[in-house]
Design a protein around this nucleic acid. Structure first.
Length: 764
DNA sequence: ATCAAGGCTTTTTTT
DNA sequence: AAGCCTTGAT
């Protein structure tokens, strides 16, 4: 059982075998961080520790899933019972059980960022404040960082420093908005993302017996990406492990890139003060990259002042120098990258999936996409809008949310007049005002019109009552029908399905398909268990707000070039990496050049980008670039100069730039863009945007996904699904329109699909 | 109550 | 350049 320890290097092995007492593992890029974490858990289990007593926290669902599957591979099914998940999902689980002590019902809704923003917008409006001064983004950021530092609305409003800062920035009412926002969430029985952490802290602070319960349960606490924890997370971890201090944190201070969301790099730098008798393990051997890449990256990060001393090295080969490409414009940069990729593929027999293009901001993907499409290079964009965030999906989910938690006001507002049922702004406003005045939820107002008469026309009143009746009829089914049956009923009874089906525009069709896919996912959920109580809609909905799109696409199956922001690339690796847009004001970002610590974070970001590469990293910049429709020019990034020239290949200048041809072209474009009303010629744009969301784009249109005749789908054949890729039919049951297939998708797993929804294509 | 046009904002974003 | 919100017309 213990021979898996042989697969570790000495430092990794010591880290794994140190199980009692606090320890910190500083894991340089590519040094086997996940391996240490998973082997450590496996080691604990092999020593007979009950999996129930181990808590492992990650930042993403993906990381948690990956660790779980690796552990199961090492030790078998015990792995399933380890408490492993994201901070948010683990603590929402705790709050569903014990949150009643804080006044929440266990069916509380989790507001996502959009719900929060929309709530803030309505508060700003109600207070008659200028929505251009009080932008939702700004306010939410302020509230969020307060909560992450465990400052309540009440504390905020008695904190002179904060109040003065708000006054100075011309926004003296932020404190008041914070208070109202807090009340509205409470009234809606809802928590935002930050509340999941804030309330867990509150629970542990005010209810020592609850804290004790979890301290007894989680005898071993392991934390991944510790450098990215914020104060709220830090404190929870500290409290949970206060009893026996079997805490193990893993991270790399050099890869801390989320301070703009409250991550505090001091948490990892100060670990030694919190646990003076801690053990530290440094994983310094990089197994991923060439010497050139490792040394170039080391040279860059050395410019930062705040860091833990370490020496990352590799025994890999020296490798290529780092090419630097110089382009005249952003579109030329795209062309140069596409050409370079084409050459690399030809000369080195490299596949698409071995290549990734990284950028600072999402907007930069466009010029690259255009160029790749022209060269028929298949690509895939990571990130962007999550499936569950899309409008049509959120609309249907909002019905579910309201049925489960009638006080969920954001859900109510979203659907009370969608599909259109003649309940207009005025009516809604009266409901809002009444709810505010009587300090009850909007649902209470419309549920009992006799108690809360509204000054609206009798037609409007009638329409509202009809809506209430409909929602109540769904609520009555909540524990009687399984999630799929109920969801189906809601989708059709609300006429939502029909409304979308009538829309024959490409967007409309895509929306309809997305709804079908959601229904399919819910159907699939109901096949996991046999008891009705495990198939109910609330259970399905519990974690939906915490899911992101990365949970859907696995890169195993598809052979496409990956495009993503550097932030999204953390934790990933590719043989060939292109880092584009190395220009001042873009990377480093203009917003992050004011203080040393901001600039250091940008530098860490550059470090992360460089260290994603295994064999070769290429850099590029453009002298001119369109920004929000205007041409701007920037000097090359300072980061280029921070790499020892020894590791650089001289700048490859774009052909068109050197011949002067492109300058004419580019002047023309400039003149053109100054004139309003010129004809655009980009028919593929809307298609590509759609695909961006579904994270799969091909050179031509892949939207033609002709549904195969259901009759032809039989056990044994291979089919292709729009999202899951290719898979094999394992079983078919049911008949005609209710025919269900069990399909095995390599790398994804087994899925149960309803054929009338799944739109499977038969592959020869 | 609903729709169309015009105007304004715009980083990164594991949850 | 594009999405989203507000405004104005019907």
């Amino acid at each position: 059982m213990e021979n898996f320890l042989q697969e570790l290097n000495p430092e990794q092995r010591s880290a794994v075998k140190h199980t009692e007492g606090p320890s910190m593992v500083i894991a340089g890029a590519g040094s086997g961080k996940t391996k240490v974490l998973t082997y450590k858990i496996a080691f604990l289990l092999s020593k007979g520790i009950n999996p129930f007593n181990i808590l492992a926290l990650t930042f993403t669902n993906k990381a948690a899933r990956e660790m779980k599957s690796r552990i199961t591979n090492l030790v078998g099914n015990d792995g399933h019972n380890v408490w492993m998940g994201t901070f948010h999902s683990v603590f929402s689980r705790i709050l569903r059980v014990d949150g009643n002590l804080l006044g929440y019902q266990s069916n509380f809704t989790i507001y996502d960022t959009n719900d929060s923003k929309s709530l803030i917008r309505s508060i700003v409006k109600e207070l008659n404040l200028d929505s251009k001064v009080y932008t939702a983004n700004n306010i939410l950021g302020r509230i969020s960082s307060s909560k992450n530092n465990l400052i309540s609305a009440k504390a905020y409003n008695t904190n002179n420093e904060l109040l003065l800062a708000d006054k100075a920035s011309g926004k003296p009412f932020i404190g008041q908005i914070f208070t109202i926002y807090t009340n509205r969430l409470a009234k809606a029985n809802a928590m935002d993302f930050d509340d999941l952490l804030y309330n867990t802290n509150l629970l542990f602070r005010d209810f020592p017996e609850i804290l004790y319960k979890y301290q007894m349960q989680f005898k071993y606490v392991l934390v991944d990406e510790y450098q990215d924890t914020n104060f709220a997370q830090y404190l929870i971890i500290k409290k949970l492990s206060a009893n026996n201090e079997n805490i193990c944190v893993v991270g790399d201070d050099a890869q801390s890139i989320y301070s703009f969301r409250g991550a505090n790099i001091q948490n990892i730098l100060n670990f030694k003060n919190d646990y003076p008798d801690y053990s530290i393990f440094k994983l310094e051997q990089n197994y991923r990259s060439t010497k050139t890449i490792v040394n170039a990256a080391n040279g860059v990060i050395a410019k930062n002042k705040d860091q833990i001393q370490k020496e990352v090295w590799t025994s890999n080969e020296q490798g290529n120098k780092i090419p630097v490409l110089k382009a005249a414009t952003d579109s030329e940069e795209g062309i140069m990258i596409a050409e370079s990729i084409f050459e690399t593929k030809m000369n080195l027999q490299v596949q698409n999936k071995e290549i990734a293009i990284l950028y600072r901001t999402n907007a930069q993907s466009r010029s690259i996409e255009d160029a790749l499409r022209k060269k028929n290079i298949e690509y895939k964009i990571y990130g962007g809008l999550s499936f569950y965030q899309r409008k049509e999906i959120k609309d249907l989910l909002s019905y579910f949310r309201l049925i489960i938690n009638e006080n969920d006001e954001e859900a109510l507002l979203r659907i009370i007049n969608y599909p259109v049922r003649g309940i207009g702004k005025t009516t809604i406003q009266h409901i809002t005002i009444a709810a505010e005045k009587e300090n009850v939820s909007m649902w209470e107002i419309i549920q009992h019109p006799e108690k809360h008469p509204l000054p609206v026309s009798s037609t409007a009143q009638k329409r509202v009552s009809q809506f209430v009746t409909m929602i109540n009829s769904f609520k009555a089914q909540l524990n009687k029908l399984d999630a799929y049956e109920l969801a189906k009923q809601v989708a059709s009874a609300t006429t939502l399905l029909r409304t979308l089906n009538e829309d024959k525009t490409p967007e409309g069709v895509s929306k309809f398909e997305n709804i079908e896919e959601l229904l399919n996912a819910i159907y699939e959920f109901t096949t996991h268990n046999n008891n009705l109580e495990d198939k109910l809609l609330p259970l399905f909905m519990q974690d939906v707000a915490l899911l992101t799109d990365q949970d859907n696409d696995d890169k195993n199956e598809s052979n496409k070039v990956s495009l993503m922001t550097i932030h999204a690339s953390k934790g990933l690796e590719f043989p060939y990496i292109y880092i584009i847009g190395l220009e001042e004001n873009l990377f480093p970002s203009a917003m992050s050049m004011n203080t040393r610590s901001e600039l250091e974070e940008e530098r860490r970001l550059f470090y992360v980008a460089l260290t994603r590469a295994e064999k070769r990293v290429s850099l590029s910049y453009a002298e001119n670039r369109y920004k929000w429709g205007n041409l701007t020019s920037n000097r090359p990034s300072r980061f280029l100069k921070e790499i020892d020239p020894l590791f650089l290949d001289q700048a490859t200048v774009s052909k068109t730039l050197s011949s002067g041809k492109s300058l004419r072209k580019f002047n023309k474009t400039k003149a053109f863009s100054d004139t309003k009303g010129y004809t655009k010629m980009s028919p593929t744009k809307s298609v590509s945007k759609n695909m961006k969301a579904i994270s799969s784009a091909t050179p031509k249109s892949s939207s033609s996904f002709p549904p195969t005749d259901i009759q032809n789908i039989v056990v044994g054949i291979t089919v292709e699904h729009q999202r899951f890729g290719k898979g094999k039919i394992i079983n078919i049951e049911g008949n005609q329109s209710n025919k269900k297939a069990t399909v095995f998708f390599p790398g994804i797993g087994q899925k149960n699909l309803l054929l009338k929804f799944a739109k499977l294509k038969i592959v020869k």
